[in-house]
């Protein structure tokens, strides 16, 4: 059974443990600005929303890549960036309608969530279960995935996690 990240913003307290864990796991530093998951703050409402890639079935990033640098991990369902092939052209960053693949100026490559190979550190670091990693069919189709199909009627894939 494939698993996926489920985000429940109502539980998020804005502690940023997820960003710390992510940047440490992937970049070797505790630096939220290098995290692949981002917590957005709605100041007026005092609300926090963690946000990252849903590994959508359409894989806009993968399709747009001109050099075959994004591939599907068949075990986790994650779309992963192959650092050695990525040329840093950034076309994936404008193609992903969720804005979840970003350019990292210091490496000259793009970065995105790869589910840490099946053990996402953001989920284990989250003290309030705002982020959890659970069996895919428990999550239901989240709104974002629904949106993905609405933005393009051309989907040839059945959702990878369905």
């Amino acid at each position: 059974m494939e698993k996926s990240l489920v985000i429940n913003p109502d539980n998020c307290t804005g502690c940023l443990q997820c960003e710390m864990a992510c940047s440490y796991e992937n970049e070797g530093v505790f630096n939220p600005s290098k995290s692949r998951i981002k917590v957005f703050t709605f100041h007026q409402e005092g609300r926090f929303v963690p946000y990252t890639c849903t590994q959508c079935a359409d894989a806009w990033c993968q399709q747009a890549c001109p050099v075959d640098a994004i591939s599907l991990n068949l075990v986790t369902g994650a779309k992963e960036v192959n650092e050695s092939s990525c040329v840093g052209c950034k076309v994936c960053t404008i193609s992903c309608p969720f804005g979840t693949i970003n350019y990292n100026q210091s490496s000259g490559k793009v970065i995105k969530c790869d589910l840490c190979g099946g053990d996402p550190k953001c989920a284990s670091a989250c003290p309030t279960q705002a982020i959890s990693y659970v069996d895919a069919d428990q999550t239901g189709l989240d709104k974002m995935r629904k949106w993905a199909t609405e933005t393009d009627h051309a989907s040839t894939n059945t959702p990878a996690n369905a």
């Binding site: 981002k38 806009w60 950034k90 960053t93 404008i94 193609s95 992903c96 309608p97 969720f98 804005g99 979840t100 693949i101 970003n102 350019y103 949106w147 609405e150 933005t151 393009d152």
Partner: peptide, 14 residues
């Protein structure tokens, strides 16, 4: 401006 720039496509397209 580059962070999360793809959402622009999502907002326009949607």
């Amino acid at each position: 401006h580059t962070q999360n720039i793809g959402v622009v496509r999502g907002l326009i397209r949607g």
